[in-house]
């Protein structure tokens, strides 16, 4: 577990995700506040089909609190203890995250196949340097779909490169299967791999896909001591076709911007009726005034 994160500032990062982001700036301006500053970095690792995604999170511990560091450049590299390969420099966003995606092929691995990933913030006048690293072995998950005896079967095959550089199965590991949703991943099952590095899952019914029923399915190894986080994905149209929401009872729709027709018509009729009579009364008054001009006064 502890290998996954170099620093586990659990509570603070938890709240990073919760609260509105408060960014700070890693510019060159000298720090005006003299409070001691400590930079902290965490590194999250995810191995995809043929690339790895490294997410470094940088934040500052000040006397008066913790903030994310934004626009700081993080240098990512991979090494096997002897040679290192730079993966590039990436700036942090306002959550303090810098994300690096690198192809797995060609990364230097040690004799066990492990690759040591490092994220490094060199620091500047204002903020001290910080570094985090993480070790994992690349792996690959493939998903395939088939229908057997009218049952929908999801099959996963998980492989790694063995010492000779050949593809070899990963046995006995636990695979979690998810559907990605707007805010989170919906878990639809678990698979334990057999010796051949594969396993199956009866695909559940009544999972809502898009309007055509397409579903993106993710299979993951999570928090594994050797492989870290590994993920494979595939698309299948086994989902229930998405029906956009309709009110269960026809709405009276008084809340819509436009009023119902009957209401508009009633209003117009009533107002027209009333104002026509007003006009008539005013017309009579005007006529009274005119009459007085025509027949010059009997009274004065």
């Amino acid at each position: 577990m502890k290998r996954i994160f170099a620093f586990a500032l659990l509570l603070s990062l938890m709240s990073v995700l919760v609260l509105k982001p408060a960014g700070s700036y890693a510019g060159e301006k000298p720090d005006t506040t003299a409070t001691p500053v400590e930079s902290r970095m965490q590194l999250a690792y995810l191995c995809g089909a043929d690339s790895v995604i490294l997410t470094a999170t940088l934040n500052l511990k000040k006397e008066d609190g913790t903030v994310n560091l934004k626009n700081a450049f993080i240098e990512f590299s991979a090494s096997n203890g002897e040679s290192a390969k730079s993966l590039g420099k990436f700036a942090t966003d306002q959550e303090g995250n810098a994300i690096c995606k690198a192809p797995v092929a060609g990364l230097p691995a040690d004799k066990d196949g492990m690759i040591n990933y490092t994220a490094k913030f060199t620091g500047n006048k204002k903020y001290p340097a910080a570094e985090a690293s993480f070790k994992a072995k690349p792996a690959r998950i493939r998903l395939s779909f088939s229908i057997q005896d009218s049952l929908r079967i999801l099959k996963v095959d998980v492989t790694q490169k063995n010492l000779k550089g050949e593809t070899a199965p990963i046995a006995k590991e636990k695979i979690l299967v998810y559907i990605p949703r707007i805010f989170s991943l919906l878990k639809i099952g678990e698979i334990t791999l057999d010796d051949a590095g594969s396993g199956t899952l009866e695909f559940p019914k009544e999972i809502v896909g898009d309007t055509l029923g397409n579903l993106t399915v993710l299979a993951k190894i999570e928090e594994n001591d050797n492989f870290g986080n590994v993920q494979g994905q595939n698309v299948i149209n086994w989902g229930v076709h998405k029906q956009y929401y309709k009110a269960e009872v026809p709405s009276r729709e008084l809340w819509t911007p436009i009023a119902p027709l009957w209401m508009i018509i009633t209003l117009i009729i009533m107002l027209a009726g009333v104002w026509a009579h007003y006009m008539y009364a005013v017309y009579e008054l005007i006529m009274i005034k005119r009459l007085s001009k025509r027949e010059k006064p009997p009274l004065f």
């Binding site: 996954i4 994160f5 586990a8 659990l10 509570l11 990062l13 938890m14 995700l17 999250a44 995810l46 995809g48 995604i53 997410t55 995250n97 994300i99 995606k101 998810y178 990605p180 989170s184 991943l185 993106t216 993710l218 993951k220 999570e222 928090e223 986080n229 993920q231 994905q233």
Partner: peptide, 18 residues
């Protein structure tokens, strides 16, 4: 909380992958 954090970290990663 720790558990939640781990999940969230992973979710964010998944977002990128997806």
């Amino acid at each position: 909380t720790r558990r939640q954090f781990l999940k969230k970290g992973l979710i964010a990663g998944a977002g990128v992958a997806v």
